[in-house]
Nucleic acid binder design. Structure first.
Lengths: 137, 137
DNA sequence: ATGGGTGCAAATAATTTGCAGGTAA
DNA sequence: TTACCTGCAAATTATTTGCACCCAT
């Protein structure tokens, strides 16, 4: 009969630390930032491990990933499994998950009208959150 | 009194070649692809120059730029100066400029409702165009 | 025991920058 | 002239991969 799931991931100390850090905030962060945070709190986790753990989470649907206009990849734990978008503060990275059913159907319709199939899209909103707008600098 | 515009760009042979290539298609392409094309058609333009010319065009509002989900930066000449989005074929890169006034106001409203200011957004649609869908492989 | 997980160093890849020499205006 | 432009090489940055060793199961 069937053997145990081939893709099952292990509970290592490193992944625990990475997950713990990710759970501390809802904000999007780069692998490099997470790595730096881990280091500064005394963890010996390697950068490679951070990248691999994040990719594993994304593949498992447990983390969201997106790119800044500058191209850097961002990660955060998933608030919900389904498709959604993000409103991200440019200053502090504060993130709000956004649902846009109207946008979903609009993009699909537009694409179909142009003869495109197998449609997907990316939509991210950037701005300055109220907390950051209140700060002097 | 005021001296001539400091940012005026010159008509060099290299920029002419790059522009000529860009004008041959409406599709989005990477700097590396453009560079390779120039080389294969015998041009001696350097990769650095391609990058700098493209950035200059973007800064001048004469070129659009966007990123694939994979992070690679794409460029193409601007069909219009104003803000707009793109419907891009994953297979051949065929691009259609899309206008979405409703999306613009929606993103602004959502952002404001969450206390965000200085709002911007990115929205790109990907799919398979009819020509590519018709191909056997 | 064993197959996935880890870390370091090296490899990729896409851009960018330092510089010395070239050139449009 | 002279400020901007070029190209090559070197430097940056982000991310991935090779590998030998380690550990959760």
């Amino acid at each position: 009969m069937a053997e145990s799931l081939p893709g099952a991931s292990r509970n290592t100390k490193q992944r625990g630390e990475i997950l713990g850090l990710l759970r501390q905030t809802d904000d999007f962060r780069t692998a490099q930032q997470l790595y730096a945070d881990l280091r500064s709190q005394g963890s010996g986790v390697g950068l490679t491990t951070v990248y691999r753990a994040l990719q594993t989470l994304v593949d498992a649907g447990e983390a969201d990933t997106m790119r800044l206009p500058s191209g850097e990849q961002l990660f955060r734990l998933c608030g919900q499994g389904r498709h959604h978008h993000h409103l991200v503060c440019r200053q502090c990275g504060r993130t709000v998950e956004i649902d846009g059913p109207a946008v979903e159907s609009w993009t699909d319709r537009i694409a179909r009208e142009h003869g495109f199939t197998d449609v997907s899209h990316t939509l991210e909103i950037f701005g300055t959150c109220s907390a950051c707008a209140a700060k002097p600098e």
